[in-house]
């Protein structure tokens, strides 16, 4: 490696990392939160079997899973202005990514809700809980640990998909790399460097996932109170 290339890579690194922290991460987190709220609604109207809304939810998922994310992003950022809806790039990206990930998360949540044994619902009804209450108190808390790995998987995908935002003028990690290539012509090295930045972020996410899963491991086995063998004798 020449000294020049080494200097370019070293000076590019903090710029890319900064773009990651300032743009890529907030974009990922905001989109995912928006997508999560939307996903819960999409999943619940399906599981609750609410007429019309259920069909709308299915059509929504069909559309957003069936078309490319880049096309969705372009429709919102470049397309909507022609009907008078002009959005700045960052909000447009949050909406596009959020709506897209919502479709995937909705399926994960729906499957998890269906995986909660029906006996739980029956027992809840029989002690007098209403549907919203049994959802909030019994079903969703049990569905969450089931959905968690799939949701986190979608989060990691989203982190990488945000690189598409570089196509609508957002200067995140990928766009930063492109800019530097623009004046240094070192495309191979700099794209690899960008890849390393993404890899760093997704590694941290995977690590967080592991930690959370252990926590959520549902009162993980080792947290159990010690079996009190001597209960009888004590009594």
């Amino acid at each position: 490696m020449t000294q020049r290339l080494a200097n370019i890579l070293i000076s590019a690194f903090p710029d890319m990392l900064a773009a990651g922290f300032k743009i890529t991460i907030p974009l990922t987190v905001l989109s995912f939160l928006f997508g999560m709220i939307l996903a819960l609604l999409l999943a619940i109207v399906q599981v609750a079997n609410i007429k019309v809304l259920k069909q709308i939810s299915q059509i929504y998922i069909w559309f957003f899973r069936g078309t490319p994310l880049l096309v969705q992003l372009f429709i919102i950022y470049f397309g909507l202005p022609s009907v008078g809806i002009v959005l700045p790039a960052f909000p447009a990206a949050v909406i596009a990514f959020g709506m897209n990930v919502a479709a995937y998360n909705a399926e994960a949540v729906r499957a998890a809700i269906l995986a909660v044994p029906v006996g739980q619902t029956e027992a809840a009804y029989l002690i007098g809980l209403t549907y919203p209450r049994l959802m909030v108190r019994i079903v969703l808390p049990q569905a969450f640990p089931i959905a968690f790995p799939s949701l986190f998987n979608n989060l990691i995908s989203l982190l990488k998909d945000t690189s598409l935002a570089s196509c609508i003028t957002i200067v995140e990690v990928m766009a930063t790399a492109k800019q530097i290539i623009g004046w240094t012509y070192e495309s191979l090295a700099l794209y690899i460097e960008a890849a390393i930045i993404y890899l760093m972020f997704s590694t941290v996410l995977t690590w967080i996932q592991g930690l959370l899963e252990k926590r959520l491991g549902w009162e993980a086995k080792e947290d159990r109170p010690k079996e009190r063998v001597k209960t009888r004798a004590e009594g």
């Binding site: 739980q120 029956e122 027992a123 809840a124 108190r137 019994i138 808390p141 049990q142």
Partner: peptide, 9 residues
């Protein structure tokens, strides 16, 4: 219930 159906959470 036969299968208890205690709320697992």
């Amino acid at each position: 219930f036969q299968t208890f159906n205690l709320f697992r959470n």
